[in-house]
C-alpha cells in the first residue's frame, strides 16, 4: 500500500454493485497512479489507496473493491465492516444492475455503519445510446433514500474524480460537524501514534443492528 506521507484522515470506502458494472475500472481510474504491481505474491495487486487534498486537509482514501468476490458471501460481508463511505455502482445500460441496487443497500446497511455515506453511481455514460436506466429515475431513487448521486464513465474518465471527491468530502463533513456521535464513524487523525485504518476489521464495532 501506498505512501508514508502525512495525512489527517483515513477513510475506508467500499465499492459495491453487481459484477460487471465497472467497479474495478472506476477504482483503477481514480487511483491510476498509485497501484503497486509487485510481482511478489505476498503483496498481490493492490491499487486501492489514494491521498487527496480537501481544503487544508489531507485525506487518505482506502477503497475496497469487491470485484470478483460478489458471490462469496462470507468474504464480502467482512468488507463492509468499518466502511464510512460506499459507492454503489450500477450500469446505466443494464437495468438489472439498477434493480439490484436496493438489495445492495440493504446488505450495506446490515453490515456497515448506519451513518455511512452512500453514493449511487450510474456508470458507463459513454454508452449513452444503450441507456436503459433514465437519469431522473435513479436521481429520484437516490433522493428518496438519502444517497448522493452521479453518473460516471470510467472509460472516458467522466465524473470519476468528482464522485470520489464528493463522497470523501461528505464523509469529512459528517465527521467534522460531529453530526455523528463519537465512535460511530471513526476516522483516524494524524494525532494517533500509529495510523490505523478507520474501522479496522478487528475492532468490535456496533453495527447498524444495534446489538
Amino acid at each position: 500500500m501506498g505512501s508514508d506521507e502525512a495525512y489527517n484522515f483515513v477513510f475506508k470506502v467500499v465499492l459495491i454493485g453487481e459484477s460487471g458494472v465497472g467497479k474495478s475500472n472506476l477504482l483503477s481510474r481514480f487511483t491510476k497512479n498509485e497501484f503497486n504491481h509487485d510481482s511478489r505474491t505476498t503483496i498481490g495487486v493492490e491499487f486501492s489507496t489514494r491521498t487527496i487534498q480537501l481544503k487544508s486537509l489531507i485525506i487518505k482514501a482506502q477503497i475496497w473493491d469487491t470485484a470478483g468476490l460478489e458471490r462469496y458471501r462470507a468474504i464480502t460481508s467482512a468488507y463492509y465492516r468499518g466502511a464510512v463511505g460506499a459507492l454503489l455502482v450500477y450500469d446505466i445500460t443494464k437495468h438489472l444492475t439498477y434493480e439490484s441496487v436496493e438489495r445492495w443497500l440493504k446488505e450495506l446497511y446490515d453490515h456497515a455503519d448506519p451513518h455511512i455515506v452512500v453514493m449511487l453511481v450510474g456508470n458507463k455514460t459513454d454508452l449513452g445510446s444503450e441507456r436503459s436506466v433514465p437519469t431522473e429515475e435513479a436521481k429520484d431513487f437516490a433522493e428518496k433514500n438519502g444517497l448522493l448521486f452521479l453518473e460516471t464513465s470510467a472509460l472516458e474518465s467522466t465524473n470519476v474524480e468528482t464522485a470520489f471527491q464528493n463522497v470523501l468530502g461528505e464523509i469529512h463533513r459528517k465527521v467534522s460537524s460531529k453530526e455523528v456521535t463519537r465512535g460511530s464513524i471513526s476516522a483516524v487523525s494524524l494525532a494517533s501514534p500509529v495510523p490505523r485504518v478507520a474501522g479496522d476489521p478487528e475492532e468490535k464495532k456496533p453495527c447498524c443492528r444495534n446489538l
Binding site: 474495478s24 475500472n25 483503477s28 497501484f35 504491481h37 498481490g44 495487486v45 493492490e46 491499487f47 473493491d65 470485484a67 470478483g68 468476490l69 462469496y72 468474504i75
Partner: peptide, 14 residues
C-alpha cells in the same frame, strides 16, 4: 476469491 480478485485487478489495471 482472493486470487480471482487478483486476476480481475490485473486484467483491469494493465
Amino acid at each position: 476469491g482472493v486470487h480471482l480478485k487478483d486476476l480481475i485487478a490485473v486484467h483491469v489495471v494493465f
